[in-house]
Design a protein around this nucleic acid. Sequence first.
DNA 1: GAGCACTGC
Length: 695
Amino acid sequence: MPSFSAGASTQKQQNYQRRRQQIREQRKSLPIASVEKRLVDEVRKNDTLIIVGETGSGKTTQLPQFLYDGGFCQDGKVIGITQPRRVAAVTVAKRVAEECNDQLGKKVGYSIRFDDSTSNATRIKYMTDGLLLREALLDPLLSKYSVIVVDEAHERTVHTDVLLGLLKKVQHSRANASKNGKTLPNVGHSQNLTQKACQGTRCAPLKLIIMSASLDAKCFSDYFGGAKTVHIQGRQYPVDILYTYQPESDYLDATLVTIFQIHLEEGPGDILAFLTGQEEIESLERLINERARLLPPESSKIWTAPIYSSLPSEQQMNAFKSASAGTRKVVLATNIAETSVTIPGIKYVIDPGMVKARAYNPVTGMESLIIIPVSKAQALQRSGRAGREGPGKCFRLFQESEFDKLVDSTVPEIKRCNLSNVVLQLKALGIDDIIGFDFMEKPSRTAILKSLEQLILLGALTDDYKLSDPVGHQMARLPLDPMYSKALIVSSEFKCLEEMLIVVSMLSVESILFFPREKIEEARAARKGFESSDGDHITLVNVYRAAAECLEKSKNANAKERTMDKALTRWCRENFINHRSLKHARDVHSQIQGHVQQMGLNQSSCGEDMALFRRCLTAAFFLNAAMRQPDGSYRALATSQSVQIHPSSGLFRTKPDCVIFNELVRTTQNYVKNLTRIDPLWLAELAPQYYATED
DNA sequence: GAGCACTGC
C-alpha cells in the first residue's frame, strides 16, 4: 500500500508540474507578453489609457496580472475589470485564478448578479459592467479600486456607456480629492455621499483603462481628453473575404445556395451562417435538409445545428459537438455566435449582412425589433469567426460596393432604447443635469425628456426633476424596470406585495410559458390549469405558486437539492413552462425580496381578494391602459395608438372593455401582451393625476 | 390567431 500511494502522489505531482509548465508556456506565447513592462509603465505615466487589442492578444487575462505584479494592489486596493457579459466574467476569472495558482475567490474572483465569488482577499476582480454601476450607488468614488479596466468597450452597451461617463467623473473627483487632502470638491456627485465615501480614506487617483477590439479607438481617446492609445497585436489566422458579383434579392435563398456551393466545392471544415432570428433559422434548416436528400450518394453529408438564445441549452449544445466523419456541420446562428459564444471548427462563414436590432421611438415610447444591414465592424467580427483555428473564408452575400456603404459601427444602444432606468440611476448618483451630462454619445433630447416625464408620472422625480424622497430613492435601489419598482411600492400600500413581487419577477424574465408548434394543443391544455379569467398577471402568480408547491413537496420528502431540481425540471416539461426562465424568475424574486425587506415595505398578501390585486395593478400600470373600440380593436389611452390583444394572452378571446398591459410590441401590427381586465372607472379613481375627468 | 437579435442589475 505505501508504495502504491507514493506512486500515485508522484504521478499527481508530475501532472501538476506539467500543467504549471503548460500554463507558463501559454502565457509566454501570448502577443501581449512581450509588452508587459511597457504597458505597466504607460499605466503609471497616464491616468487613462486606451488599449486596442485584437482577438487572441491575451489582454483580458494578462493585463490585470501585470498590474498586480506592478504593485497596483498595494494598501489592499483592488483592480476591477468589467465585462458586458456574465459568462465572460466567470470564465476569465477562473482562468486567471488557475494561472495565478490560487483558489478562485481568493486573490482572483468574480462578481455578477446572483453569484459573488470574491472575498476580502480579492485583488483582481472580474465583474459585469452593470454590477459596477450598482456598486457606485453605494460607493460613489469607487474608493476600493486603484484601477478599473473597461473591457470590450467597443460593444457600447448601455451599461458601458453610462459607466464610461461615470468613471470620467469619478476620476476627476478623486484627482481633486487627493490633491486637496480632505476637503472634497463636489463634482456632480451629491455632497454628503462623496464625503461619506472618502471619510477616513485617502482617495488616490483612479487609473482607467479602456480596452477595445475595434480599430476605431479615436472616439474613446477623444472622450478622455486625448488619452494615449496603445495597440497590441492579435493572433488571428487570415480570412479570405469574398463578395457577390450581383446584388442578392433574397438573402435566405442566397445563403442556401452558398452552403451547398461550399459543401460541394470547398475542402473540409464547418460552416457558420449568420441569420436574423429563430424563424429564419427554422425555415432554412428545413430547406437545407430537403435539398441535402438530393445530394449524390457518394458525396459527404450535411448536418445542421441551430443556435439562438431562446433555444433550450441542451439543444444549443449540439452546435458545439463535432460532426461524425464524412459529415459537414452547418451551424445556423443568430448574433449569439458573433460575440457571446465561440463555436469550434468553423472554417467558413456566410454573412448575409443583416441583423435584427432593437429600435426605439422616443415620441411614442415604443420599442420594436427591425431587420437592418450590419455595420462594417460587425461584418468584420463575423468574418473573424472563420479564422480562429486556421485560415478561413468568409462569403459576404452582397457586393463590395455595398460594404463601403455600411456604417462604420453599430449605433450605441443608448441611442436606441428607453432611458428611464439610465436617468433614474444617474439621478441616484447625484447627477442632476441629465441633458448636460457628458455622455460619450448623447441620446436625443426627446428621448431624455420622455424618460424624465415618465419618471415624474411614476413619482420618482418631483416636478422640478429632483429624485423624490423616499419613492425615488427606493425605486433607484431596485434592479428593475422603474415601472415595476413603482408597482412594488404601490402594492405595499394596497397590501398585496406578495403577489406583485411574483408578478414583477415573472415579467422581468424571458417568457415563462412556451408553446412548441408540434404540441400546441397539449401546451394549451396545460395552461388551462393555471389560467385566470381575470388575465395574465394572475395566471403568472398561479404558475409561480404551483412551481413553489412542487418544490415544497419534494423538499418535504427530504429530497436532496439535485433531486428537487430534477422534480422541478420534470414539472416544467409536463406543464410547458420554460425551466430556465422560471429559475431566473425565482432568483430575481429572492433578490428583490431582500431589497424590499430592507426597505421595510409592508409584505402582505391579498389572499383571495383578486379584485384588490387588480385595483393595485391598475394603480401601478395606469400608464398602460387600453379601451376596447366598437370595431373590436383597442386604443392605448396614453398614446392613442390602435393596438390588438396578442393571441398569446389568456384574454385574447374574452376581449374585455378595459385592460392594463405590460408590453406593447410592434410586429405585423401593434400588439399588447400580459394583460389584466379592469374596471375603467378605476383609472380616474386610482390615477386621478393622469385621468382627471374631462367633463 | 402570432412569434421573440443580444445582453444586464
